[in-house]
Nucleic acid binder design. Structure first.
Length: 303
DNA sequence: GTTGAGCGTT
């Protein structure tokens, strides 16, 4: 497939605008958003079913529904459709709902034999349910396993099952637990006071560009800034137009280019941690200590 | 080329 123009409109009855595809026939969401600011996807009316159909979107790249885009008019999707419903509830309820869906998170796998590979993990954990990510942590220099890794499942039920038992992997008993990073802030409670529009993206890889991060996070809402520290420090900051979008992502593990990144609250720039937490009586003082500890791990003067 | 509680960079 070669470069072409596809017809896109705000509404089925509006006059369409032609926007260019890439050389491989895909269309970048950013190209759509350049003409339709805030767009988060495309849909079209299927000539067969007469129903509206969504266009496949993978990490900021829109894929033609058939061999090519054809002569159809594609209609722009906006996150506002969801936001209207979101407006009726506060961030606290949003968090509850998010938890109600029971999203999966990465699990740390402790006690792996030195010889165990990612393929071994995939084979083993695949017997419990669909696996979407496995990692064996290795010494960068020697390539030797550090004896632990991570796994992520599609279904929360699978995650629960896996966490509830010990695992015999290549001749050793291993444990699967929620990693410690999960205990930072996102477990503080449903009334999380931080309502920043900016999120901290941990565990970034060096090959992730600001543009790619923007492409990726656009699916959740309008992105107003992406900051990547130089030299490479394995994290980034992403700022959204809407704080509710930012907050809804906090605590999640998202997979970008096959790598699991961790989203958490961005810390205020000129932080006075104890002042921040003092506004919320009843909260454990240890929370500020945890906050400081994480800050020590990721020293940052940004925000 | 070793090891065995932990906590995720290339």
């Amino acid at each position: 497939m070669t470069e072409c123009y596809i017809r896109v409109a705000e509404d089925e009855n509006e006059e369409p605008m032609e926007i260019p595809s890439e050389e491989d026939g895909t269309v970048l969401l950013s190209t759509v958003a350049a003409q339709f600011p805030g767009a988060c996807g495309l849909r079209y009316r299927s000539p067969v079913s007469q129903c509206m159909r969504g266009v496949r979107l993978v990490e900021g790249v829109l894929h033609a529904p058939e061999a090519d885009w054809g002569n159809l008019v594609y209609v722009v999707n906006y996150p506002k459709d969801n936001k209207r419903k979101m407006d009726e509830m506060d961030a606290a309820s949003a968090v509850k709902i998010k938890r109600g869906i029971q999203k999966t998170s990465d699990l740390i796998v402790l006690g792996l034999p030195w010889k165990t590979t990612e393929q071994d993990l995939k084979d083993y954990f695949g017997t419990f349910g669909e696996v979407i990510m496995v990692q064996v942590k290795r010494d960068a220099k020697s390539g030797n396993s550090k004896g632990f890794g991570f796994v992520r499942f599609t279904d929360y039920e699978t995650q629960i099952k896996v966490m509830s038992q010990r695992h015999m992997i290549d001749g050793r008993w291993c444990d699967c637990k929620l990693p410690n990073s999960k205990y930072f802030l996102e477990q503080a409670g449903p009334d999380e006071p931080m309502r920043s529009r900016k999120v901290f993206v941990g565990r970034c890889t060096e090959d992730m560009t600001a543009d790619e991060l923007r492409q990726f996070f656009m699916q959740y809402g309008e992105v107003t800034d992406v900051f990547i520290p130089k030299p490479f420090r394995a994290f980034a900051f992403v700022t959204f137009a809407d704080d509710q979008v930012a907050q809804s992502l906090c605590g999640e593990d998202l997979i970008i280019k096959g790598t699991s990144v961790h989203i958490s609250n961005a810390e205020p720039k000129h932080n006075n941690i104890h002042h921040l937490f003092s506004n919320f009586p009843g909260r454990s003082p240890s929370l500020a200590a945890m906050f400081e500890r994480s800050q020590y791990q990721f020293p940052s003067s940004h925000v």
